[in-house]
Simulated assay, not measured.
Amino acid sequence: MILSMIPLMIGWPQVILIAVVVLLLFGGRKIPELMRGLGSGLKEFKDASKEDNSDKKEDKK
């Protein structure tokens, strides 16, 4: 089996298994804190990519 195809083979049972493992490892109290950190990281990434796109547009003009 080609290793590049493995991410395409993840279905709902695997997602549920991963969620259960995360719940067992971190516990119910830590998960909201982890999700807040993930959300703020994604927001920073989006803001940085928007700034990068605006810089490229200004350079073209």
Results as ranks from 00 to 15, higher is better:
residue 51 E to M: 09
residue 58 E to N: 13
residue 26 F to T: 04
residue 10 I to L: 08
residue 7 P to H: 02
residue 61 K to P: 00
residue 17 L to D: 11
residue 4 S to Q: 10
residue 15 V to W: 02
residue 11 G to F: 03
residue 47 D to F: 07
residue 5 M to I: 12
residue 16 I to A: 13
residue 38 L to G: 05
residue 24 L to N: 01
residue 32 P to E: 07
residue 32 P to C: 11
residue 46 K to F: 06
residue 6 I to K: 12
residue 8 L to D: 11
residue 50 K to T: 12
residue 11 G to C: 06
residue 20 V to Y: 07
residue 52 D to K: 13
residue 10 I to Y: 01
residue 21 V to T: 10
residue 42 L to H: 02
residue 9 M to Q: 13
residue 35 M to P: 01
residue 7 P to W: 00
residue 49 S to A: 10
residue 45 F to D: 08
residue 22 V to L: 13
residue 3 L to P: 07
residue 28 G to H: 05
residue 22 V to R: 02
residue 49 S to H: 09
residue 58 E to H: 10
residue 12 W to I: 15
residue 33 E to S: 09
residue 59 D to M: 11
residue 46 K to I: 02
residue 21 V to P: 00
residue 45 F to P: 00
residue 56 K to Q: 11
residue 14 Q to W: 01
residue 40 S to F: 00
residue 15 V to R: 12
residue 55 D to V: 06
residue 29 R to V: 07
residue 13 P to C: 09
residue 47 D to H: 01
residue 44 E to G: 15
residue 27 G to W: 12
residue 60 K to Q: 12
residue 3 L to K: 09
residue 28 G to A: 08
residue 1 M to C: 12
residue 35 M to N: 03
residue 43 K to F: 01
residue 54 S to V: 13
residue 5 M to H: 06
residue 10 I to K: 11
residue 17 L to E: 14
residue 23 L to K: 04
residue 14 Q to M: 03
residue 50 K to M: 14
residue 57 K to M: 07
residue 12 W to V: 15
residue 27 G to F: 08
residue 57 K to F: 02
residue 24 L to C: 12
residue 33 E to K: 11
residue 37 G to I: 09
residue 6 I to P: 00
residue 25 L to I: 11
residue 55 D to Q: 08
residue 60 K to C: 09
residue 14 Q to R: 05
residue 49 S to N: 10
residue 9 M to S: 12
residue 54 S to Y: 08
residue 43 K to R: 05
residue 40 S to N: 12
residue 28 G to F: 14
residue 43 K to A: 15
residue 13 P to A: 05
residue 37 G to L: 06
residue 53 N to K: 14
residue 49 S to I: 11
residue 37 G to F: 11
residue 38 L to K: 03
residue 30 K to I: 04
residue 6 I to E: 03
residue 42 L to I: 12
residue 61 K to G: 13
residue 31 I to Q: 04
residue 41 G to E: 03
residue 3 L to A: 15
residue 11 G to T: 11
residue 27 G to A: 02
residue 45 F to E: 09
residue 34 L to Y: 04
residue 5 M to Y: 08
residue 39 G to Q: 09
residue 57 K to V: 09
residue 36 R to K: 15
residue 47 D to A: 14
residue 9 M to R: 15
residue 30 K to G: 00
residue 50 K to D: 14
residue 25 L to R: 13
residue 31 I to K: 10
residue 12 W to F: 08
residue 57 K to G: 09
residue 30 K to A: 15
residue 45 F to S: 05
residue 3 L to S: 09
residue 17 L to N: 08
residue 3 L to M: 08
residue 54 S to F: 09
residue 26 F to G: 01
residue 28 G to I: 10
residue 46 K to W: 02
residue 52 D to G: 07
residue 26 F to M: 02
residue 39 G to F: 05
